[in-house]
């Protein structure tokens, strides 16, 4: 799995590609920790090139939900394949982590908040 970080307007974009499993989830964990430490307040994880996710990946996202609330951080995922989105849906995590069809939709949702 690879993570590419970039800035777009006021948003930190984390683009993840490949397989997010127990062998790679610490990379994502480090990237999100770093974003919080650097006081990013708008974070979008673009998953268009994410081909697989297991509970290790879900767990990383889940473990920050409380921090995002406590620090008023806008955090969302976008552009998930149907296969990856299904894994979120199994446990109902799509109701706890905002998921949008595109980066533009995620930014619009933040703008309209």
């Amino acid at each position: 799995m690879d993570i590419t970080t970039s800035k777009s307007e006021d948003y930190l974009i984390l683009e993840i590609s490949g397989d997010l499993d127990a062998s790679s989830s610490m990379l994502l964990d480090s990237a999100i920790t770093q974003a919080i430490q650097e006081k990013e307040t708008n974070i979008i994880v673009n998953c268009k090139n994410l081909s697989y996710i297991s509970s290790a990946g879900l767990g990383v996202f889940m473990s920050y939900i409380q921090d995002f609330k406590d620090n008023n951080i806008f955090f969302s995922l976008c552009d998930l394949s149907e296969k990856v989105r299904n894994v979120f849906n199994i446990l109902g995590l799509e109701k706890l982590i905002p998921i949008y069809n595109s980066e533009a939709d995620a930014k619009a949702a933040k703008h309209n908040r």
């Binding site: 297991s54 509970s55 767990g59 939900i65 199994i90």
Partner: peptide, 22 residues
């Protein structure tokens, strides 16, 4: 529960939940 895991900021605990559902 997932709510408890979120509150405790846990990363683990979802794997067997998934398997039991699937």
């Amino acid at each position: 529960s997932i709510q408890k895991l979120i509150h405790e900021k846990k990363k683990g605990g979802l794997g067997l939940m998934l398997v039991n559902k699937i």
